[in-house]
């Protein structure tokens, strides 16, 4: 550990030339991740980045750790095998809105419910980039692309709500325009025991340029986003402070004043009841400010811990794994 304590951000940069489009949000994410790795105190050889297919999935090539660029949508399944084979590894899954929610939706669902201790970073740019600009499962309805010249008919899904529905034990959102916020969220994800799911709002400079500007552009950010912090009330606004209130019929946004009603929400990511993080996850722009930060984190035993416990118990109960005993199990007879 003494050596790893001295690791710098640059120690995590590989010798490969980064080939994302100039201005792509992925550069900032890469930088934030490399910074967090240096802080993490885990030796490089114990870190594995695993990706599927898509722009974001080139990520492992740029990390000077172990890496596996797999096939479309399957990174969570690959990561499951890696983590079960060696629970000491710090395993990171890099995926996107197409890779993770379309072709790989099933695997995402199951890795979350199993609570395998891997960290999933889902880059959501609401478009297919690598295949040159088709609509994705998170694209806004009506979005015009080459595969939807008359506008996308499909209704989008919200990654945070998907993760919550899959019983994820850690769910967070951050955005590529804020390296500091990303670093904080990634660090929290790394420290969580169990599957950590992080949606990263990410700008595709070519096919979906400025898609999140309404939310996170510096000029509007304070009025259109809300930063979640445990124990803090849900208050936002650059000049005029507004709060999110639970009024009995749902959530309302109201000005903070002496005449504010009862029910100003106070954030608690450890809330076990499912309605709270789901309510937060349902807050979408423009009706609500977009929440970023940790929505949910609860303690739940991980799959690999339980599997290795079962192995330990089986060894205690059945004793030595003797091949002789195994071969001779059941009815045997002698000839000659």
């Amino acid at each position: 550990m003494t050596e790893s304590a001295t690791l710098q951000k640059k120690d995590f940069q590989s010798d490969q030339i980064v080939r994302w489009c100039p201005g792509c949000g992925d550069y900032a994410i890469l930088s934030a991740v490399q910074g967090v790795m240096a802080e993490l105190g885990v030796p490089r050889e114990n870190i594995v980045f695993i990706s599927g297919i898509g722009c974001s999935s080139r990520f492992p090539y740029y990390m000077n750790t172990y890496g596996f660029h797999t096939i479309h949508g399957r990174a969570p399944a690959l990561a499951t095998g890696v983590k079960l084979a060696n629970p000491n590894l710090s395993v990171w899954v890099i995926t996107g809105d197409g890779d993770g929610l379309s072709i790989g939706g099933n695997h995402l669902l199951h890795v979350l419910r199993r609570n395998i201790d891997v960290n999933i970073l889902l880059f959501n740019n609401k478009v297919y980039g690598l295949t040159k600009g088709q609509y994705s499962p998170t694209s806004d309805q009506g979005m015009k692309t080459k595969s939807s010249p008359d506008g996308a008919i499909e209704y989008p899904i919200n990654p945070i709500r998907v993760a919550l529905a899959a019983e994820a034990s850690f769910v967070a959102r951050t955005y590529d325009a804020n390296i500091k916020h990303m670093a904080e969220v990634f660090m929290e994800a790394a420290q969580h025991k169990g599957t950590s799911f992080v949606e990263i709002l990410q700008n595709c400079v070519i096919f979906n340029k400025d898609v999140f500007d309404d939310v996170y552009d510096r000029k509007v950010r304070d009025d259109h986003m809300i930063h979640l912090a445990d124990g803090e009330p849900l208050i936002f606004g650059s000049e005029e402070k507004k709060g999110v209130f639970f009024t009995g019929s749902g959530l309302t946004v109201q000005k903070i004043s002496d005449s504010s009603p009862e029910g100003l929400m106070v954030h608690n990511s450890k809330e076990h009841a499912p309605f709270y993080p789901n309510m937060l996850a349902s807050m979408e722009y423009p009706a609500y400010p977009v929440p970023v930060g940790v929505f949910k984190r609860i303690a739940r035993p991980t799959y690999e811990t339980m599997l290795h416990d079962q192995i330990k118990v089986a060894k205690q109960r059945k004793g030595d794994a003797s091949l002789k005993k195994l071969f001779h199990a059941g009815e045997t007879w002698d000839i000659g």
């Binding site: 797999t70 399957r74 399944a77 499951t80 890696v82 983590k83 060696n86 199951h110």
Partner: peptide
């Protein structure tokens, strides 16, 4: 969860 995940998890285990 499916045949694909079964083989992919195996490949992950092989890598490790």
């Amino acid at each position: 969860e499916d045949e694909i995940a079964a083989v992919c998890a195996a490949i992950g285990a092989a890598f490790a």
